[in-house]
Amino acid sequence: MRNTADLDLTTDAGILSYLVTTLPADFPRAVEVTRLSGGHANFVWRVKFAGTMEDGKNTAIVKHAEPFLADDRDVLLGTIRMKYEYEIYTLFANRSPLLPYLPEDGPIHVPKIFHYDPATPVLLVQDIGVHLDLKTFFSTHKPSDDEAVAMGRALGTFLVDFHSKAADTESKAKLMEPFENEQARMIIQAAVHDRVGTILAGVNSLSADTLQAATESAKAFGAELMESRETLIMGDFWPGNIIVESDATGRYLGKLWIVDWEVCRYGLRAMDVGQFSAEAYLLSHFRNPVARSMLTAFHRAYVTGFLKGKPEGLRRTFMRQVSVQFGSHIVAWAEFAGWTKDQQKLEEILKVAATYIENATEQDNWESGELAELADFLHSTDN
């Protein structure tokens, strides 16, 4: 095996040379790489091989991590992040009983691992094809209401199963240490909850009381996220990390691929639920109202799987946590992600978010606002 220290793995030539000289002898020869857009943290390419991989295709996706962001070298980030993605993909590939079983003919999938080199680090994974992520799919296509419901149901069912399996005693004993991922905890707290007060301070129409209450609530929840080891969470469960398999006409083919698991860790399940809820709400509000049907189906599936027959105290705690994460995520990303360039609309959505953070313990707020369906489902699973 060649010493790769002299290769610049951030370049096309460097990564191709690495693949040619370093992959195991039973792999087909890499002949071409094409840099892919959208990789913020890592350098990502589609690699073409002279022969077929084990999935029958002659292409795969290669990811390389440097100790900084691929799209901003001034931002430092430990390369250990790639280890967590490798670990979770391996567990799924081995059909670990600690995680949900994902049948080949089912609606939810994760890519298969072909090769991992922790020293570089380089990860070679299955190429799932050229498809749109869920956010882009709803922004540029017109899925039917039935398709939106099917997607939401599949995602909610998967997520509650994933959380529930990883929360049991056996799973925690085996998975908690490998998925501690302290780096991810610190990143999320700094990028989301610690920024809420600064961002809301720029909303002129927000009262001083709401600003203070929302800031304190978000910071407290950020600290709660740092301490909690409730269950294994995906950690970045948003439509941009969910790929929609569709045909040439844009018709949904019944398969969703969940990718980019680098911030997977033990934490609060409400983090995943709140983040997806916020993104799906923004998608329905600014891009495509049909996304609301997806969100409703997601809530119904998740709540039914998690809270049916559970005590009222657990329901209220869960709703409080989801509400704060819902609002905090919107505050942190609404402007940065470019949901609207209209300053008035931006301020309106930030005020909605601030209200959810401030009043997360108020049941009346749940039942009349953007999370009304979730509140309804909480009450409909008493038995």
Rank of each mutant, 00 (worst) to 15 (best):
A173D: 04
L99N: 06
E216Y: 14
H299W: 13
R153C: 15
D6Y: 04
A214D: 07
V31L: 01
P143L: 04
A208V: 13
I199D: 02
N181L: 05
V110R: 11
L159D: 06
F137T: 13
P103T: 11
I349T: 13
N181E: 15
L211M: 14
E373M: 14
D161Q: 14
R73E: 09
A208S: 13
S17V: 01
E32L: 03
Q343R: 12
D6V: 11
R315I: 12
A360C: 14
L99R: 11
M234L: 12
E182T: 11
S207F: 00
H40V: 12
A270P: 05
V130L: 07
M53A: 01
V322P: 06
A201V: 02
R81W: 09
V273F: 04
G254F: 09
T22G: 03
L98G: 10
P97A: 11
I199P: 07
T157E: 04
V160M: 12
E85L: 03
M53K: 05
M186G: 14
H141V: 13
K63H: 03
A214L: 11
Q126E: 15
V192R: 11
E216P: 03
A50R: 06
G313L: 14
A191V: 14
N359A: 15
V322S: 15
F138K: 01
A220C: 08
T10G: 10
S246P: 01
N383Q: 05
D117Y: 07
A191T: 14
D74H: 13
K351H: 12
E147I: 04
M82D: 06
K219C: 14
Y89W: 07
D6C: 03
D6S: 10
K112A: 12
F92A: 02
F286A: 07
I61E: 02
L102A: 02
V352F: 11
Q189W: 07
F49S: 06
R81A: 02
Y89A: 03
D236G: 05
A201C: 15
L16C: 00
A25M: 12
I187C: 07
F138M: 03
Q212Y: 13
F336I: 13
T215Y: 02
A353E: 05
L175D: 09
P111D: 08
H193W: 14
P28L: 09
Y84V: 05
A184P: 10
L36I: 01
P24Q: 12
P311C: 12
K219P: 01
D133P: 09
N181W: 10
T4H: 05
L378K: 07
